[in-house]
Simulated assay, not measured.
Amino acid sequence: MNFTIINGQIYTPGLAIIDAPQPYTPLGGDTLQVAIDTSGDGQLTSSSSTAFHTLNLFLTSTTTHKNLTISNGTTPSANNTYVGPVLDLEPSSTVKHVNWIWPACFVGSGGDKSPRGDYNISVHQGFRWEGTDYYTVFELPISVTNAIGESEERVDCAVLENEWVGWEALKESNETLPGQPWVSGSQGGGSGSGSEGESGGGDESTSGSLGRRGYKAGVMGWVVLGLVMGVVMC
């Protein structure tokens, strides 16, 4: 199970680069914290041929079929439900820091039973790359295993639940990006390449196909995106 990771940055099959967390990190505490570089590590300019349309985050589990909203691109009705539009966070910075309050169903100490366990931070991107619109989904595996304490700010998981949408529903097109946008020499499907890091410095890169699914954003693609982004508010 490989990812394109260079100097600790995780390159998605889109414009976003994840600075944190790293794959398979055991998480808990007060909030889920995600740091996302939206500048292509300084390579994204104001060119109209390449730009973000949307950037939305979900917490998903293939074992429990949970699909919880972290940010669906809308403004939440309460500060403790979900995060507002990611691209609007910290307007003066190209690195967006998402702090999502764990919902109440995750409260517990390390080793407690479901719904804690293995999850994915599911990164949904709508964007234009060199004049063509794409919609891609990238799954970053984490483990919700560390202690999460009681708090009045935690909402019920039901407030954040979305319909589970399996991958079959996302196969509107099998066309993918010609390569990872920000990694030179990358080959199809978002995979990338980099130099092997030596002790004391240099780039450290791994590449592979896990979590990289890209779809040209036709009409059906945006319909599916709408289904995934829908929030059931209780």
Rank of each mutant, 00 (worst) to 15 (best):
M229N: 13
G42A: 03
Y134T: 00
N79W: 07
I17L: 08
T75P: 04
L177Q: 00
D118M: 07
F106V: 01
S186L: 08
G185N: 10
N146R: 15
E139N: 07
A16P: 03
L15Y: 00
E196M: 09
N67H: 11
V34T: 08
S46L: 11
T50S: 00
L87E: 01
Y135A: 11
T81L: 14
G117S: 12
W102A: 03
S193P: 07
C234F: 14
N2Y: 10
I5T: 09
W182K: 05
P85I: 08
V155G: 08
V231L: 14
L160H: 01
P141D: 13
D19R: 10
L55R: 03
G201T: 11
T12D: 02
S207A: 15
W102S: 04
G221L: 05
T12C: 09
K171N: 15
L57F: 15
S143F: 12
L160D: 04
I10P: 00
N162A: 14
Q125G: 01
G185M: 14
G230L: 15
E139G: 08
V123N: 03
A20D: 09
T81Q: 12
L177N: 00
P13G: 06
I18P: 04
A35Y: 11
H97V: 12
N162P: 01
S193R: 13
D37E: 06
V98Y: 01
P76A: 05
P26E: 15
G192A: 10
W182D: 00
N56Y: 03
D41V: 11
G28A: 14
I101T: 10
S122R: 12
P23C: 10
V155Q: 06
G131M: 06
G189M: 09
S92Q: 15
V228F: 04
F52G: 00
T63E: 11
A20G: 13
G29E: 04
N174D: 12
H97A: 13
L140V: 08
H124L: 15
Q22E: 15
T31Q: 07
S205M: 13
D19Y: 10
S109V: 15
V95D: 04
G201R: 10
G226Y: 14
V107E: 06
